[in-house]
Design a protein around this nucleic acid. Structure first.
Lengths: 335, 335
DNA sequence: CTGAAAGCGCTTACAG
DNA sequence: CTGAAAGCGCTTACAG
């Protein structure tokens, strides 16, 4: 592959000059400039970002760590990030952690070695130590929906989301309202559950622990939870799932087992992935502007990288809003 | 950040020795070795992949170009690729082209400059010239479901897929069977349509062009096609969509407009994305082992990169298989 | 068993 | 208006 030396030779100039016309970083006479440009075209020259990165100490590459890019939520987030990054001249390395600590660590090592300019970290539980390798090597990090001290983040108002979803169900006259939480009841999905409890309390509905089942964010777990709810002596007439995927898993079970949604049971999800509007029935959900959040995450990271942010960690909170669609309806009359 | 010189100094050895213990590339006495290891730990040293890449002329990085990673089909493919790449020590750069030529070109330039070891290219139409920049710079490329001369590829038996889907519908007694094709009727989705026609012919059903509408692989386009079919004087009782997304878009329209699936109209898709099993009703579809295809694509690329493949372009064909689920049923009796 | 040195391909002061 | 040279941080013959 042609190098800057080849170009310089072909144009009869020094490599300094070639470099400067390449980067527009100092004046070059029109005549020299065009000779250089011509040589570049002739040789089909593409400067090596590697060599450039070595001296500039920046790679124009960032990394995204998610549990699984197939999950539509992370897919959409990735899209927003990638879009913003591309527009700003950055590439993004995709990393799936499967929520595995060892895989994550392996990735962090690779990413540090590759000298990525920053990473968007979105995975696993609340152990801030997991980010330590990055911090040790001064690699900027931003996260979403996770509150690590000293790390830039966009936060989600989970309490409010759980509250809105459940209040909607209460207002439709439901009294037995179940909840599929996330696995880590202590933290994020915990707030969604607390919002659920708050709405229940305001509606004067006693909290029944039998109506809360933990899922693991997958279709399958939503499905399994629905099955268990159906086996209850008094099955719920409504259901709030902590994400759309589990809501959809639940609906697929209910529809297939003679409990039509929303005629017999109402379901509301969380996230508003694209698919939700196209489900049958279309899913009522607490909508987050996922792609936009991705873009803002990336913006935040790049701003941090380029020193445009104050020293202290930045923090923004986005609120979900209730999007009412076809999966919720007034509670069936008690016979 | 600590460099190999810092480590050498701390351990009282030359950088050659550090390099060799790092890479296990020549014998180092146990004692020296442990001194080096200790220095590495002490300094929290991470070798620079950049510097390494400069001299080795390989970056251990590949790129994946897809139209849109949010599309579950590409999301799953990306997952398979990323998995295989990770296991082999490669990172993958994610690129969304939106099927835009200019975006694609911009990406190719970035990727060539970054000296990626290879790219998995999966996008847009059949213009082989688009790959020219890669070929000019001798960057290995593999594709899926696209047949460029001289390029390694995994191919899909689209004809067979369209045929299986449609034959299934015929066997259920349907006579008015519609088809949602892809936008590029000339090529891949074209083969799916030809398979559809073949099955029709074998069942003695005359081909009716009014029953074929082109979509663009999105939910929306499936939905729109379903609407137009419903407006026909004699609406179809069955529908083959060239991918699952469009099938789902169609079902969501049908269910919402008093044409229950499968009671009044049967629908079969193509791909078998994870979601399809969880749709309501679960989608009958022509299943492709998407994740596995991704893995094999990546394997093929790495084999090519590492010179384990014969000079001539490799070519494998995978056949879809019919997965019968809840979205198809016997044709309704004609009253 | 280990080290000195060239070279990978750029950017960027420093000089003139 | 332009060039010579150092340096980014490694790997890898070459020597001993």
């Amino acid at each position: 592959m042609a190098t800057i030396y080849d170009v310089a030779r072909a144009a009869g100039v020094s490599i300094s000059t070639v470099s400067h016309v390449l980067n527009g970083t100092r004046y070059v006479s029109e005549e020299t400039r065009s000779r250089v440009l011509e040589a570049i075209a002739q040789l089909n020259y593409r400067p090596s970002s590697l060599a450039r990165a070595m001296v500039r100490q920046e790679t124009d590459t960032i990394a995204l760590i998610v549990p699984d890019n197939v999950n539509p939520f992370f897919a959409e987030l990735a899209r927003g990030i990638e879009d913003y990054g591309f527009a700003a001249g950055y590439n993004v390395i995709l990393c799936n952690s499967d929520r595995s600590t060892t895989k994550e660590l392996a990735y962090l090592d690779m990413l540090i070695s590759k000298r990525v300019d920053g990473v968007i970290y979105m995975t696993a539980d609340m152990q801030a130590e997991r980010l330590q390798p990055l911090l040790d090597h001064k690699v900027p990090v931003v996260t979403f929906d996770r509150d690590y001290p000293g790390i830039d983040a966009i936060l989600l108002d989970n309490f409010q989301g759980g509250y809105l979803a459940t209040r909607h169900l209460c207002e439709l006259g439901h009294r037995r309202i179940a909840c599929i939480s996330g696995p880590d009841a202590g933290t994020r999905s915990g707030d969604r559950v607390r919002g659920y409890q708050q709405a229940l309390a305001e509606a004067g509905i006693p909290y029944d622990p039998a109506l809360v089942i933990a899922g693991d964010w997958t279709f399958e777990s939503g499905r399994a939870a629905a099955r268990r709810f159906c086996e209850l002596a008094q099955p719920p007439t409504a259901l709030f799932a902590s994400n759309d995927i589990m809501a959809i898993g639940a609906i697929s079970y209910l529809q297939a087992h003679g409990r039509p949604v929303p005629a017999q049971v109402s379901v509301v999800g969380f996230d508003d992935i694209t698919l939700s509007a196209f489900y049958a029935p279309p899913l009522t959900t607490v909508a987050t502007p996922i792609i936009e959040v991705g873009q803002r995450l990336c913006q935040m990271l790049l701003d941090r990288i380029n020193g445009q942010l104050p020293a202290e960690a930045q923090r923004f909170t986005v609120c979900g809003e209730l999007r009412i669609r076809g999966s919720t309806a007034p509670a069936p009359r008690v016979p």
